[in-house]
Computed example of a mutant assay.
Amino acid sequence: MTATSASGTTRGAGESTVAAPAVARFLHLAASPTFALMALSTFILDSGGPGALCAAVGGSGFNGMAPMYLLMAVFHLTPWLKLMSRQHA
């Protein structure tokens, strides 16, 4: 007997869906490193140009996308901290 999923794909009776829960368990860990890499690449690729000129004129250095990505990475560190605390306990 075959089952049809919500996306319309058909699976056979012997086919399991073990990969989806395994991926979902670790997907929340991807946010913080992704945002950290985005902050780093934005800082490196966008250094110079009009943004640097405006910051040198008197604005703070904390404007733009790189600090926002760093802040997002910090806010998404919770799953990593939980994982590390479980490993040390």
Rank of each mutant, 00 (worst) to 15 (best):
L45Q: 09
G49V: 08
H76N: 14
H76Q: 09
A56D: 14
L71R: 05
A52V: 06
S47C: 13
S85A: 14
M65T: 13
D46W: 13
L27P: 00
T17K: 05
T9S: 11
G12T: 09
P50F: 13
A31H: 08
A13H: 07
P79K: 02
G59W: 10
G58A: 04
R25W: 05
E15G: 01
P79E: 03
G14L: 10
Y69K: 00
R11P: 00
G59N: 12
S41I: 15
V23E: 03
M1I: 08
S60M: 03
A89K: 02
G8V: 11
L29Y: 12
P50Y: 15
L53G: 01
P21I: 04
M68Q: 09
G14Q: 08
M72K: 01
L45D: 06
C54I: 13
A24C: 01
Q87M: 14
L71A: 12
V57R: 13
W80P: 00
A52T: 12
L77F: 05
Q87F: 10
S5G: 15
L71C: 13
P79Q: 01
V18R: 11
A73C: 00
A24D: 08
V74Q: 03
A6I: 04
A66T: 01
R25L: 10
M65E: 07
A31I: 09
A13V: 07
A39N: 02
S7W: 06
T34M: 12
I44Q: 09
H76M: 11
L70H: 02
S32D: 01
S32T: 03
T78W: 09
G49N: 05
G48N: 04
A20C: 02
T9F: 11
G48C: 00
A19Q: 08
A55G: 11
A39T: 03
A36D: 09
L70E: 05
A73Q: 00
G48W: 02
L40Y: 05
A24R: 07
R25F: 05
G14A: 12
L27W: 09
H28T: 11
F35A: 07
S16Q: 10
S32N: 02
A39L: 05
A73R: 00
R25E: 12
S60W: 10
L27H: 07
L71D: 06
S47W: 14
H28M: 10
L37A: 15
L53I: 07
A89Q: 03
P50S: 14
Q87A: 14
A31T: 07
L83S: 03
L81A: 06
L29E: 07
A56G: 08
G61Q: 10
S85Y: 08
T42M: 01
L37M: 14
L37F: 15
V18A: 15
R11H: 11
T4R: 08
A3L: 11
G58M: 03
G61M: 09
G59I: 02
A20W: 10
T9E: 14
C54A: 14
A22C: 03
P33A: 07
F35R: 00
A66Y: 02
G12K: 06
L40G: 07
S32G: 10
S7K: 06
L45R: 12
G58K: 02
I44P: 01
F62M: 14
K82S: 01
T42R: 05
F62I: 14
H76W: 12
H76S: 15
